[in-house]
Design a protein around this nucleic acid. Structure first.
Lengths: 114, 114
DNA sequence: TGACATATGCCGTTGGACGACTTATGGTGC
DNA sequence: GCACCATAAGTCGTCCAACGGCATATGTCA
């Protein structure tokens, strides 16, 4: 699972949200770093609905325009929990290894002037 | 940055490694979950060389066959550090939100028999 | 009136990951 | 002696998630 998808699920973790609110929430979660494109958003929503990780929570007509809100399914919650744990472990291992780094002699293959 | 790439950089975080050793290391780091295909590996190595996140550390001829080993550059190390921190923060936020989950009434949009 | 936020959605492109394949050596077991 | 697996490096075509751009519509504020 890639970051945009994971952030999307995270945005639904505390409560259901509609499309535009998801974009705002992902922006907040990621500290302004990830601005979901609507192409990514609705593509991902369709995919996640198909995979039954999310479901339509409500459909209201606001000014004759459909407003859908989406929620995590139980399966989606389980998946997000697992993904978050996997991510945490991967990040921890990377940080551990960065700390372990050996101070190796720097070989300069092309005879660069060091 | 996607997971395979991040794991590849992580595999180089403690010391230089050649291609096959990277595959083994990524397998270990990920707890047997991620088996890098050689297509992914050499594609990523080429890309990361171009981006100067990694460099060729040594080239020895073993039995007339070239064996290259790759190392993180300073830039690669910085990037990996940043990516790991970003990942850690994302995972933490997901876990926090999973804990925050509201117990909302379950709306069953299609009149499903609960 | 024009700009911007809110809000939903489609479509074509791109790029990273993937699966399958090739080549080569050395060791282990039958 | 031969088959099979581990080690080792690499290519190529495909696929799909993400992306950028676009269309559409309403409400609000200057």
């Amino acid at each position: 699972m890639q970051e945009p998808t994971l952030l999307l699920l995270t945005a639904l973790a505390d409560r259901p949200r509609h499309g535009y609110a998801i974009v705002q929430e992902v922006l907040a979660i990621s500290g302004g770093r990830v601005r979901l494109r609507t192409g990514t958003l609705y593509g991902a929503l369709d995919r996640l609905l198909k995979e039954e990780l999310i479901e339509i929570y409500s459909e209201e007509a606001v000014d004759g325009r459909l407003r859908r809100s989406y929620a995590l399914t139980a399966c989606g919650r389980t998946t997000l929990t697992a993904e978050a744990e996997r991510l945490r472990a991967t990040a921890a291992e990377a940080q551990r290894r960065l700390g372990l780094a050996l101070r190796l002699p720097r070989i300069t293959p092309k005879g660069a002037t060091t």
